[in-house]
Design a protein around this nucleic acid. Sequence first.
DNA 1: GCGTTTATCTATAGCCCAATAGGTAGAATT
DNA 2: AATTCTACCTATTGGGCTATAGATAAACGC
Lengths: 218, 218
Amino acid sequence: MTVVPLRSRRSRTSPRRRAPEIIEAAARVFAQQGFHGATTQDIADVLGIRQASLYYYFPSKEGALELVCLQGVAGYFEVAKAIASAPGTAAEKLSRLIKSHLAPLTDRSDFVRVFLNERQHLPSESRRRIGKWSRGVERVFEDVVKEGVRRGEFRADLDTRLAVLAILGMANAAANWYRHEEVAIERISGEFARLVVDGVKKRRKPRSRGRRVPRPGR
Amino acid sequence: MTVVPLRSRRSRTSPRRRAPEIIEAAARVFAQQGFHGATTQDIADVLGIRQASLYYYFPSKEGALELVCLQGVAGYFEVAKAIASAPGTAAEKLSRLIKSHLAPLTDRSDFVRVFLNERQHLPSESRRRIGKWSRGVERVFEDVVKEGVRRGEFRADLDTRLAVLAILGMANAAANWYRHEEVAIERISGEFARLVVDGVKKRRKPRSRGRRVPRPGR
DNA sequence: GCGTTTATCTATAGCCCAATAGGTAGAATT
DNA sequence: AATTCTACCTATTGGGCTATAGATAAACGC
């Protein structure tokens, strides 16, 4: 009796095939000009289509921003958690966290920059959702740092909260000056990780250069 | 013969007495909503005056942005240079640079945030001028770091450019999460300076705790 | 007291911009 | 071949925003 919609049965080629391309254009424009500084016309110009045609792909300018932001961080939280719960010293884990934090810059720097700089302009609901995500990431970092302190690997007088904010600030800033022509991301993240762990100061007599595993316990 | 304007002679009370207040309101609104996200109406609302009245104090919205940005960094470059050329170890200078970099957050955080986040939206001429200023500050930092390497105080394998970008990224990020209720700026900058110099890792047997002066020369 | 300056106001011009409505050519499906 | 769907298009509405023009009241200086 009731007419079953045959929609799901037909059209094996999904609609909106260019959607990724459209979102990427939005990411580029938002990254360059900021959300409010960019117009939908600007995005359309990049793609060579009319401004109104964009609304076939996203419901609103804010909706486009949300799509871009989500793609900017997709999958990262899982990776971070995996690193934190894998074996290794706290210093090793922290290095890996920093590296995986910077890795998306190689192929998605526009998305990352938009997430970092423009997420504040999301409508309040999705902003809160994404704020929760951010705090989750901070939490993973802080747990690793605390672990390092607990195991006597890191300084006992470390303010773990401030240390995490410093590390994330340092790493996130890279999104704003990194241009993929110059230095490789691996180089940057390696240097950053080293800096966080060892600082700039020369150690006195690094006796055994190879082993880094600390004495366990306090 | 020619009529000398008596303007300069009269009115010892200079005009535009509220200008500082107006610029501060602009700074607050720009900091919160971003330059393009803010309207001149928003600024007027903060002050309780009409939107058009603002144009008695600044020539355009972009002009207001420029005034805010300039106040965000006024005097800082001179302080930085003075620190760099004063006596002391590189580590001490670097610590002082970081502290003086964060100091303006106590009483001018809105101005600093606008400078950091919105200066890209300045008209191209003043943007270039201010970009030059920024590079000057980076230069001061890098010179100190290089000095530390040269004197054998810092690691020889340090990438000084990346180190400076890391330090500034870390410090500048603080502008975006610091709210003056919570922690004192001195606390934050102290912790940051320590982190940059020593890293998170525990040193092995810090023998003489008091003296920090390194052996001079390589 | 009288001209002048200061600090606002009202009103509006003139853009620009997001978003909607409705149309259409061509490809895909049946 | 007929129908449906995809991926655009044109045209337009309606609102918001910066900036200007001109008026005015109060304060100031002589």
